[in-house]
Amino acid sequence: MIPLLLGISILTFGIMELAPGDFLNTIRANDSIPPELVESMAKRFGLDRPWYERYGRWLENVVFKADFGESFSYRQPVFSVIVPRLGNTLVLALAAAIIAWGLAIPLGIVSAVRQYSWWDKGASFIAFFGLSIPEVFFALLLLLFAAKTGWFPIGGMRSLDYNDLSPVGKVLDVLHHLALPAIVLGTIPMASRMRQMRANLLDVLRLEYVNTARAKGLPERVVIWKHAVRNALNPLITLFGFTLAALLSGSFVVEVVMGWPGLGSLTLDALRRQDLYLVMGSVLMASTLLVLGNLVADVLLAVVDPRIRYD
């Protein structure tokens, strides 16, 4: 995990360096800001030093002092800028995960049990719709829907009157804002998990022990829920960790389009301004979460499937 993050940090730093210009270019282009000031800022930010020296110093501070540097534009330690945004991203990812899993499993079960019924066809339609629609387009479509109907706010996370609301009102208000971004983000994983659930359950239902269970005279409900679904779920559980990781990376697009104040919009903004250490901080943060997500997946795999053991 450590070598991976180190690699990611070198890669990010390198790409940022290869991009032409630096953070001060926009300020240089502003003719009302005197060049003396720009030079003194370059010195202060260390932008006048070669890249390997800056990277070395940055790494040193990270490793020995847990200091991830200062954002150029906010003039604040990067983590004080990132942390509030990260919380918002996690809220969005969690909501999307709940939508994805909460819908995928029951729908997958229903369409497997009633294969080729209208239920199955309807669910399959939703799944194919979800799999084929690009996130950006879906997000724009829902924004347009919100603008035309007025049922949902257009972007943002809280309404203007948020501070005057009761605690319950506050939660409802955030949920109201959360609904559309979470739907967009949750649709793709929902669709694919649903198809997987359906396929797994169909496979299991054809196995002999299910026949045995039926032959024993168990009610169909018990056969399905107790014997078939449990086994069909196993491979899906391992996917849970990956879904979290995928949701985090997917949230970047959704946040930017739908104005959700998360890590994605912050990172994009920082990238545009070439706010070097802020980009490094957010990329590392996101990668750490991705790596952790994969770790969770591996652990779950081991827990669920006794055949897999890590030594």
């Binding site: 991009a19 032409p20 210009g21 630096d22 270019n25 926009t26 240089r28 282009a29 070439q274």
Partner: peptide
């Protein structure tokens, strides 16, 4: 891209 442009000018 804007930043590249500024680098060319400056």
């Amino acid at each position: 891209e804007f930043n590249t442009l500024i680098s060319h000018i400056r």
